[in-house]
Design a binder for these strands. Structure first.
Lengths: 340, 340
DNA sequence: ACGCTTTTTGCAACCGGGTGCAATCTGATA
DNA sequence: TATCAGATTGCACCCGGTTGCAAAAAGCGT
């Protein structure tokens, strides 16, 4: 009862089929679908008509085989629990698709076999590999070296290996801008809350922050270790700090490595009824940051631009290991101000 | 200065190369890498050795072309803002990879061209299409009909079209279980908070809930429209309800269509200092549900099982439009109890 | 109408590997 | 040692498209 008798092009329609119907050779069909090939308008029209009637769609495997270009890009993803990641994946796949590329998702979180995944992508002749917010361990770099000569791009994170391309937010610059903002507010005693130490981008952030302060003769008075990417971590870290330090000794402002920690910090201030006693700045501009109850001053990473640059490099087949840092945007709300 | 002179297998190593080095024909090489093909142990060994030395890796495009099986699965994804989605994507890609499949992500959210994306996947000869938490509009179903005969699976959602396979949580059963739980608590006046109406799975949930209550001679006293998947929505909806109804007239317990709404509802109770005055049950068991400040009683969808079933069907090339409903698990915490 | 330049088009070969079939090689049995 | 089944291997050809080359057709000036 399931026999579909509709004349829909259920099975394979090949170029030869179209050729037969259009009364030309299959090569002419191929040329019709090749940009800038030489085909007479008349032939093209007949081919197009026949193709439409038959519902012809070129087999992309075959095309990839001969053209040595598949228009598939491997997206290597780790840490599948970071909510930012979804936005990254969304933006990347979206832009890739609109430029005619397809994304192959390679999950290398936890128990998955990293080597197998990357090798498999290579065997599929992907046109490039984008590491999405992945912290590239040496092990991965080594793997990546063994594959074909294609663009390897670390997006949204940093990677010091000279053979890997990087497209990322200019953390150093961001750090300086935030330092400048806080100094402008008149703060002298300024602190920094780190996330997990392992993430190399953030180091540059702190460096820039430090240098920005140094220009005005200031130093980072206090470095708090925030730890994981969780509100509770920011909360506990600041809470403990507030407990141990009398108000006069505390820093007046705190730059947190990401919004989640910053929001946790704000929660801690709130809990102790000390909202407004310390300027807080975050990083990322996540959705909650805009909520009026936080009004978090933060720094927005130029997501679309970053992705766009990465995609551009892939489509240019640019495998040269350059590094591209894009400036983000300071989002000024209220949390960096002290009200008392 | 960038000339890589290392003897690494930078370029293409084909089966013929391996054959030459191993002193056999390329067909023997092919057979060596084919499960269950007839190759003498001696030949196999020599091929394997040569392959290893040369760093040979079969070209999967070529293989896919002849075998008519690519081991690529298209993951069609919509609503890239739903955080549940990330867990779904993670589980799916992970399981696919461990079974030797690769995932091609097709983003059909917002401005992306749905038709183009799905058609492209088809042209790449994917072995199946999984719609991840996508609400399958008719338009999509129609598109899907036009492609090759491969499994089309809607995962984590429902779809009434008889030509599409469904692998999803048994919402009807869940609804009944929750009804039973609430009745067991002694409640008589029981309500339901909906999410967005458009999502068809949830209808079954309400049906089951309704039937479960009916068995004990009860009905759903109140249907609150929660709206979007946002805490604020659950919050506002319940707040408004509490404002308009005097305690004696209120429902004693409320089953919310998802945890986000349920948590919003708990927030509303908390805000009014009426925690414990109403039993609340959610659905999904998101991370926050376990937090002691909510202790949300909820229903966990069997994510891994669902994914596993979908992957199984793909690998069996089972394109028959069956529908598979998996029971989830009631997670009993405290929020369904009344304390006063 | 004629020679000459451009297009257009057909063909063979190829991308990298897989399959059916027949030829060849085992080696165990008679 | 001859015989024959079964395992192994080579070969031609296929998958579905693309490309370089040369032949055929069309355009053009005179």
């Amino acid at each position: 009862m399931n026999k579909n008798s509709k004349p829909q092009a259920n099975q394979k329609v090949t170029a030869s089929d179209v050729a037969a119907k259009a009364g030309v050779s299959k090569w002419t069909v191929s040329r019709t679908f090749t940009e800038g090939a030489s085909v007479s308008p008349r032939a093209r029209e007949r081919v197009l008509k026949a193709a439409a009637e038959l519902g012809y769609r070129p087999n992309l495997l075959a095309r990839g085989l001969t053209k040595r270009q598949t228009h598939i890009v491997g997206l290597v993803v780790d840490e599948m629990d970071n909510p930012n990641l979804l936005a990254l994946i969304n933006a990347t796949t979206s832009q890739l698709q609109s430029r005619g590329y397809l994304s192959m998702l390679l999950n290398i979180s936890s128990e998955n076999d990293h080597g197998a995944a990357i090798s498999l992508a290579d065997q599929f002749q992907v046109d490039g590999l984008i590491f999405l917010g992945t912290v590239l361990r040496d092990e991965l770099v080594e793997l990546a070296q063994q594959i074909r000569h294609i663009p390897l791009i670390v997006l949204y994170r940093n990677c010091m290996d000279p053979n890997i391309q990087v497209v990322s937010t200019d953390g150093y610059r961001a750090g300086r801008e935030i330092a400048a903002l806080l100094i402008e507010q008149g703060y002298r005693r300024i602190g920094y809350m780190t996330g997990l130490i392992s993430e190399s981008t953030q180091l540059r952030r702190l460096e820039g922050f430090r240098d920005g302060l140094a220009e005005h003769g200031l130093a980072v008075e206090e470095i708090l270790e925030g730890g994981h990417y969780q509100r509770a971590c920011g909360y506990r870290t600041l809470e403990r700090y507030l407990e141990t330090m009398v108000p006069a000794e505390r820093v007046e402002a705190l730059f947190c490595e990401n919004d989640i920690l910053a929001i946790g910090a704000l929660d801690a201030l709130h809990k102790r009824g000390e909202v407004g006693s310390m300027g807080i700045v975050g990083f990322d501009d996540i959705e909650e940051a805009a909520s009026p109850s936080y009004a978090l001053t933060t720094y927005r990473q130029p997501l679309e631009q970053l992705v766009s640059e990465a995609v551009r490099r892939i489509s240019l087949r640019d495998a040269a290991p350059r590094r591209h840092l894009v400036p983000g945007e300071l989002i000024i709300r209220d949390s960096h101000r002290r009200t008392h």
